[in-house]
Amino acid sequence: MHEFSFQDDILPLKDKLFRLALRITMDRAEAEDVVEEAMVRVWEKRESYSNYDSVEAFCLVVTKNLALDMSQKKDAQNLSLDESMAESEMDESDPYHQLANNEKLKLIHRLINELPERQRLVMQLRDIEGESYKKIALVMNITEAQVKIDIFRARQKVKQRFLEIDGYGL
């Protein structure tokens, strides 16, 4: 087993982990905290990652679980999803939202974030990160067949709703 280096093996994953956490928490600050915590945990347990093919899959799993925990805690605090989403949409100075200053892109962003959690994450990992079905199955702890079904549903739903709304808009 090769010697681990935090700077070479874990730190370069920060953006990918951040994007995944952001898809779950929908909040930049929270996602950042999640990634930080996840990286520290992965580093502390670097000896036990052998269950996963790569340290990247291990990082993704830890990040996903921490982010889900955090969003569950947030739900427990009686903060409704609509409220937090409205809040995040208000924050236009956020660079994350500046990226989507185009109305159509904004719409797609909203449509994806409105998907059920699993479809949302699977779509993030496949269409944005470009991960293989096998890796996604490992990270999400579901079968590859299930991954394909989720991606299929997510793509269909986003396409359908986007064309619908965009068609009316034109």
Binding site: F6, L22, E36, I128
Partner: peptide, 23 residues
């Protein structure tokens, strides 16, 4: 736009201040 969105989202990331903090 569906595909453009995918590419744009891939550029979302963290700044170097995060590196300092986590290190």
């Amino acid at each position: 736009d569906l595909f453009v969105y995918q590419q744009i989202q891939k550029t979302v990331g963290l700044g170097s201040d995060f590196d300092v903090r986590v290190l």
